[in-house]
Design a protein around this nucleic acid. Structure first.
Lengths: 149, 149
DNA sequence: CCAAAATTGGACAAGCGAGTCCAGTACCTG
DNA sequence: CAGGTACTGGACTCGCTTGTCCAATTTTGG
């Protein structure tokens, strides 16, 4: 139900947030998150166009977050690459309803609202600081994070 | 976030549930739900293969639900055409985790779980009997349901 | 200035979702 | 049995998602 691109974008952003603020190159992110390099660069471009990351070319360049992990929510990342489409008007286009959804679509939209709310209330900092044995992108226990080469 | 096919399947099933138990033809459902006829027939075939509807060819034939609206949940319909894919193991395939999800994927899966739960706890009867002015598939106020021709 | 590092953008391909069309098959009625 | 009704299944199209590859561009460092 969540697209592959959303998954990739979240991995990339979580990895960026877990690194020092100087940022990472696309290759570094790709290696750490196991996302295909060439496709990841497309996803990152999309995040850049949405203003979630800055990019810097050339030696020493790479990607950086434009916000702190405390300020960036999962929802913002999801919406940057594939916006959560709430159901605001009757999908059958029946004028009788306008904004009043029928019971079916009200329930569907409620589910979407719950997802939206859950995503909006999780910041990247929440994800990174959650007390757990497993670091966000797995691989290593929380104490042995790899550092930038 | 919900596919068009899921939307169509739900419309079809809700319409079937709102009709007399003798069922409807594909054409009738298509007309009532504003779903393209030829595609709807594919969706209905899929519902039949999942055992949610029975089909009958020939004059007087059509589609019928195999359960009462009280027994049929939104989740069953959704799962028949596009199963809710919970995240059960680390999508990065990292063996370190096995079933333990990292904080990121735990949150994503939580959202999916909420949706699953919301869908599982809504039966078609719930949808049809909800006290509201708008009938499920819109078009008419609750008292002037069109009947089978 | 040159070369290496890094992002950017476009072209391309495979696969899937959505949708159409049509021939085939089963069923009922007369 | 004939003919109309209705579902079934396959072939096909179109566009989007995922993914690859490469040439162009920007930036830094020697």
């Amino acid at each position: 139900m969540l697209s592959q691109t959303v998954e990739y974008a979240l991995r990339a952003v979580v990895h960026l947030a877990s690194q020092a603020p100087q940022g990472c190159t696309t290759d570094e992110i790709a290696e750490a998150t196991l996302v295909p390099r060439a496709y990841l660069s497309k996803v990152l471009q999309s995040l850049r166009r949405s203003g979630l990351v800055n990019s810097q070319r050339g030696i020493g360049g790479g990607m950086t977050l434009t916000k702190t992990p405390q300020e960036l929510t999962i929802l913002e990342v999801v919406n940057a690459v594939e916006p959560v489409q709430r159901i605001r008007t009757c999908p059958l286009g029946l004028a009788t309803h306008g904004v009043r959804l029928c019971p079916l679509h009200k329930r569907l939209d409620n589910a979407l609202a719950m997802v939206e709310e859950a995503f909006a209330s999780s910041t990247l900092a929440d994800v990174l600081n959650e007390p757990t044995l497993s670091k966000p992108l797995c691989e290593f226990p929380s104490t042995m994070a790899p550092h930038r080469g």
